[in-house]
């Protein structure tokens, strides 16, 4: 045994070095956009204008670009309004859709009824559809609702919350159903013998165990709602309601906004989901798996 190890050690070390070299290089490549965003964002207008030095770090680190990207300038609108709109949209939509998903997941995993196995894929289908195929009726429904009932959903944050909540149900239901399915039925059965009913089982057994599940679902919903663009551009018709991704796209799309401000704005837009990712990365990974691996 010892001889075999000794014989394999030398080539092994070179392979390890090569392995790390490849990994470090790959990591470097993945970080290129971050590097570019950072150095360009911290440059002054004057420095950023010289596009031939775009790869060179700034001479002087300045926060001017971030200030303009956030507050806007006389000839451009900043991210500020969009940021708060997104916050107002993402918090209720995330919480409500997670709660609904938890209840649905509980019923579909522990209270299976006839047809539940057929119903489940029908619910899931909703998360794969291209939303283009429901946009026209969605806009029409919102407009008709406002005309006949006065409930304003079109071009309001409430309308965005409703859309994100409903179209979030399939994925939240899926994750919770898989999460609860992993909790042994014996536990539920034991409590039933003790006289627990539908509500008390959820309240005293499953819900207390759900915190990791909620974290996973909420991270998933938070990032995907924060990053959404399609519902925003379709349902929000005024800068007063634009979510942040739209504000960013407007900044980047207008020809007179310089690169340093565009990059600063992109960075600011990416910060909340990145923070979530950095601090809750472990759960994020679990969320990815739960949402995708098991159908």
């Amino acid at each position: 045994m010892t001889t075999a190890v000794a014989a394999r050690r030398a080539p092994l070390r070179w392979r390890r070095i090569l392995l790390y070299a490849v990994l470090v290089m790959a990591a470097g490549l993945y970080l290129v956009p971050v590097y570019v965003l950072l150095i360009t964002g911290f440059k002054s207008q004057q420095e950023a204008l010289n596009i031939f030095t775009m790869w060179t770090p700034p001479n002087v680190i300045g926060f001017h670009s971030f200030q303009v990207a956030w507050f806007g300038a006389p000839d451009s609108v900043g991210l500020e309004q969009g940021f708060w709109n997104s916050v107002q949209m993402v918090i209720p939509a995330t919480l409500i859709s997670s709660m609904i998903g938890s209840v649905n997941g509980y019923i579909l995993s522990k209270w299976k009824f006839r047809g539940a196995n057929l119903l489940f894929p029908l619910i899931l289908f909703g998360m794969f559809i291209p939303y283009q195929s429901i946009l026209i009726p969605l806009v029409q429904t919102y407009q008709l609702l406002e005309r006949y009932t006065g409930i304003a959903l079109y071009s309001t944050i409430a309308g965005l919350v409703v859309a994100h909540t409903i179209y979030g149900i399939p994925i939240t239901t899926l994750i919770f159903r898989n999460y609860y399915a992993a909790i042994p039925n014996e536990m539920v059965e034991a409590s039933r013998i003790d006289g627990a009913n539908f509500f008390s089982i959820y309240r005293y057994i499953l819900f207390p165990l759900s915190v990791p599940g909620f974290v996973v679902v909420m991270i998933w919903q938070f990032t995907s709602i924060w990053n959404d663009f399609l519902f925003g551009i379709t349902l929000a018709n005024t800068p007063k309601v634009y979510p942040i991704t739209l504000s960013l796209n407007n900044i980047a799309g207008s020809f007179h906004v310089p690169w340093n401000i565009q990059m600063a704005a992109a960075l600011l837009t990416a910060v909340p989901p990145l923070l979530v990712y950095i601090f809750l990365g472990r759960y994020f990974m679990r969320g990815l798996m739960a949402g995708s691996l098991k159908g």
């Binding site: 990591a27 570019v36 663009f229 796209n249 990059m263 837009t269």
Partner: peptide
């Protein structure tokens, strides 16, 4: 079984957390 596995994993995975709009803006510039 690399050292700092979680670091590498995070670096490769983090773009996932970013909006396509941000990705588009950064890569258009690059």
């Amino acid at each position: 079984r690399v050292r700092a596995e979680s670091f590498f994993r995070s670096v490769f995975l983090f773009p996932m957390a970013v909006s396509f709009i941000v990705t588009g803006v950064a890569w258009r510039w690059i």
